[in-house]
Nucleic acid binder design. Structure first.
Length: 432
RNA sequence: GCGUCGGUGGUAGAGUGGUCAAUUACAACAGACUGUAAAUCUGUCGCCUCCGGGCUACGAAGGUUCGAAUCCUUCCCGACGCA
């Protein structure tokens, strides 16, 4: 993996660059559509490619449970299995520690609002009796499968092993995504754990990389190749699409919740480790997400890429990019689409609302996506009311196109040196 | 014509003397969704409301009863059976 910064945003941390992976280039900043179970829900990979996405993200935990990482490995890796030849990122399962743990059965979002009553809990209350599918131990996390109830203990080593079997271009260290409702003491304890897990993830990654290299050398040496030729062969294969031997890049994840000291501590800690890039994870309050990102990105080494995990509403994308984020992934555009919430320049609209039933205009008149080129709001409304499968597909194409294109436009504005004008113009219309 | 069964809110369909403005599902209406337990979830869903309650309602009209969607009478409508 190779990352080059092409242009920096003046008076801020923002930058535009190119991230080279074994499966192609990612022009950063970039939005990464989420395909948890090795599919961007409702779309074919051709549709994902056509709407302009360069890279996608899949999930370790889900693919480990179903169909099983060994099946994916035996299929020739994730790229081949799901027919996506571009770059792939896999999340480590760290988010499921939160979503199936502290957030299980509750209405807690990783992005909360300061006014959210869940934040008013003065001290951490003991809710260990509450049913949850993820239970945290010092060594790893015990998951009770949401599919069949079977129990699986995931350690950092196991997460990395699974991710190596899946074979994504960028993989993440196993972390603990904490709930925004946790108090400082717990955040600190969890951070210590995440840091230990980061070191162990890194060690396991190195170990697996080396054993693969060894395997590769061994097989080549049978052919009596010179060392020089061997090295060239290994080098070549690591950038070849069909190769099983290319090595994934490993990103460490900064945690620390909403606390400045913890976030900075985590950023310092991660910076010292030999990661290829970094994820910024955990929970935020909407109102102060920007400061958290800023604290972290001021510390992280400039020359390595940063991925703001799970963030992706338009205003957040501007915020993140301005503060030095290179990659974003988020389920919002795809999930919102399937639930009838569509992005427009003037804000999100709920296409199932009565007023759209006879609205024969496009979702967005100027939009260049497949959906807008061919269909009206009334048709989309009809598909949603009729519960037709095509509703989800057409809506997802539009929403992903909207968000992917927005980030591309923001990238362009950095290169053209009019980021702040573009931001102001876009947000003034969007937040109306 | 006689007999039997049945007519409940937008629909289907519970309820069969008080706890019924009426279970439930669907439809409708609105909202939520940020590293996907998610094509999901939540709320509203007779009218009015100073949110205490008030009013009109279970085919129609009468009646019994302290009290009726529920019991009785007549009528109207539907299905089936017999002429």
């Amino acid at each position: 993996m190779d990352f080059k910064i092409e242009k920096k945003l003046k008076n801020s941390l923002g930058r535009a660059g190119v991230l080279k992976t074994a499966h192609g280039e990612i022009h950063t900043p970039a939005f990464v559509p989420v395909g948890t179970k090795a599919t961007i829900k409702a779309l074919t990979t051709e549709q994902v490619l056509e709407l302009g996405a360069e890279v996608i993200l899949a999930n370790t935990y889900h693919l480990y449970l179903q169909p099983g990482d060994e099946i994916v490995r035996d299929a020739g890796g994730l790229h081949k299995f799901m027919n996506w030849n571009g770059p792939i990122i896999t999340d480590s399962g760290g988010f499921q520690v939160f979503s199936l743990g502290a957030a299980y059965g509750k209405e807690i979002s990783k992005v909360t609002k300061i006014t959210d009553p869940s934040l008013l809990i003065p001290e951490r209350f003991d809710d260990s009796d509450a049913p949850r599918l993820a239970k945290i131990g010092q060594d790893g996390v015990s998951f009770k499968s949401h599919l069949d109830g079977s129990v699986h203990y995931i350690t950092p080593e196991k997460s990395i092993e699974i991710q190596h079997n899946l074979g994504a271009d960028i993989i993440f260290a196993f972390d603990e995504c904490t709930s925004p409702t946790e108090d400082l003491r717990y955040q600190e304890e969890a951070l210590e754990r995440t840091h230990r897990w980061a070191e162990r993830s890194l060690a396991e990654h190195e170990k697996l990389k080396n054993s693969k290299k060894q395997l590769s050398h061994d097989s080549h040496s049978v052919l009596n190749m010179t060392d020089r030729a061997l090295d060239a062969k290994v080098e070549e294969s690591s950038f070849s699409n069909s190769s099983k031997n290319f090595s994934s890049a490993l990103f460490g994840i900064v945690q620390g919740g909403r606390d400045e000291n913890l976030r900075k501590k985590s950023a310092h800690f991660m910076s010292k480790l030999d990661f290829d890039g970094f994820g910024i994870g955990g929970s935020f309050a909407k109102e102060d997400m920007s400061t958290a990102v800023k604290w972290v990105n001021k510390i992280l080494p400039e020359e390595k890429p940063r991925h703001l995990l799970g963030i992706g509403e338009p205003e957040d994308l501007f915020m993140g990019i301005e503060n030095g984020v290179d990659l974003f992934d988020c389920v919002a555009p795809t999930r919102n689409a399937r639930n009838g919430s569509l992005y427009t320049k003037g804000g999100k609209i709920n296409i199932t609302n009565t007023k759209y039933r006879n609205d024969f205009s496009k979702i967005e008149e100027a939009c260049e996506c497949y959906t807008c080129k061919s269909y009206t709001r009334a048709y989309l409304a009809h598909l949603f009311h009729g519960k037709e499968m095509l509703a989800g597909t057409l809506a997802t194409i539009h929403n992903l196109y909207f968000i992917v294109s927005l980030v591309k436009k923001i990238r362009r504005s950095i290169i053209d040196e009019n980021f702040f004008e573009f931001k102001k113009e876009f947000l003034s219309e969007y937040s109306q």
